[in-house]
């Protein structure tokens, strides 16, 4: 009888302990506690400025990332005629790889070009430098890219033939397609958008 009593007390105590564990939180279960994830794993190394500069080639619409340089339409035309014309056509119209210049005289369905579809002039510099010419990507100097950008903006009627392009003036150019775009507002649900 006494023995039985002791056991009851023991079991009761055990229950209290167990339930207090439960109230204390996760400690009675095998769970991953958040504090087991370190604030830093100490994996990887700090990038030096030199390492960053080597890869940091993106140009933003506000001009961040643009290197120093000047672009001239006449120089750009020459480079275009030697390095781009085979794929993009004379004057940037009608090439096998697509037009880069709006053809104002065409009656066909309008091709999307820098002149009618690109919202920022900085994208022209960024894209040509990173990906063109297609058969020799990454081969152009910054100066060549500036000249080509100037030429393509002029051919699209955005700047006149004597306007120089610099890291200051390029981001300030207002593109015809600036207000063509609306941010995605689809959210699922009942509406078809």
């Amino acid at each position: 009888m006494k023995k039985y009593g002791v056991n009851v007390a023991f079991v009761f105590t055990l229950l209290v302990i167990l339930s207090s564990f439960e109230h204390a939180g996760n400690s009675s279960k095998l769970e991953i506690a958040n504090d087991s994830i370190p604030t830093s794993f100490g994996i990887g190394r700090i990038a030096t400025q030199k390492e960053i500069d080597l890869l940091d080639i993106a140009i933003r619409p506000d001009g961040k990332g643009l290197p120093k340089g000047t672009g001239l339409v006449s120089y750009g035309r020459q480079i275009f005629d030697t390095k781009c014309v085979v794929c993009h056509g004379a004057g940037g119209i009608g090439g096998v790889s697509g037009s880069l210049v709006t053809n104002k005289t065409s009656t066909k369905r309008r091709e999307k070009t820098i002149g009618n579809y690109w919202p920022y002039a900085t994208t022209v510099f960024d894209y040509i430098r990173r990906a063109m010419p297609f058969n020799e990507p990454g081969s152009l100097t910054n100066e060549e890219v500036y000249h080509l950008t100037a030429f393509l903006l002029h051919a699209n009627g955005i700047i006149d033939s004597t306007t120089k392009i610099t890291s200051k003036s390029l981001p300030a150019i207002q593109m015809p397609a600036k207000n063509l775009f609306l941010m995605d507002d689809r959210k699922g649900g009942l509406e078809v958008k």
């Binding site: 993106a58 140009i59 933003r60 619409p61 999307k112 820098i114 579809y117 690109w118 919202p119 920022y120 900085t122 994208t123 960024d126 894209y127 990906a131 063509l180 775009f181 609306l182 941010m183 995605d184 958008k193």
Partner: peptide
Amino acid sequence: FYTREETSKYTEPIKDGKYRIF
């Protein structure tokens, strides 16, 4: 950054001559 792939490409027409971006 308004890269070429998110402006010239991968944008689609919606109504009234506008195009959807992002």
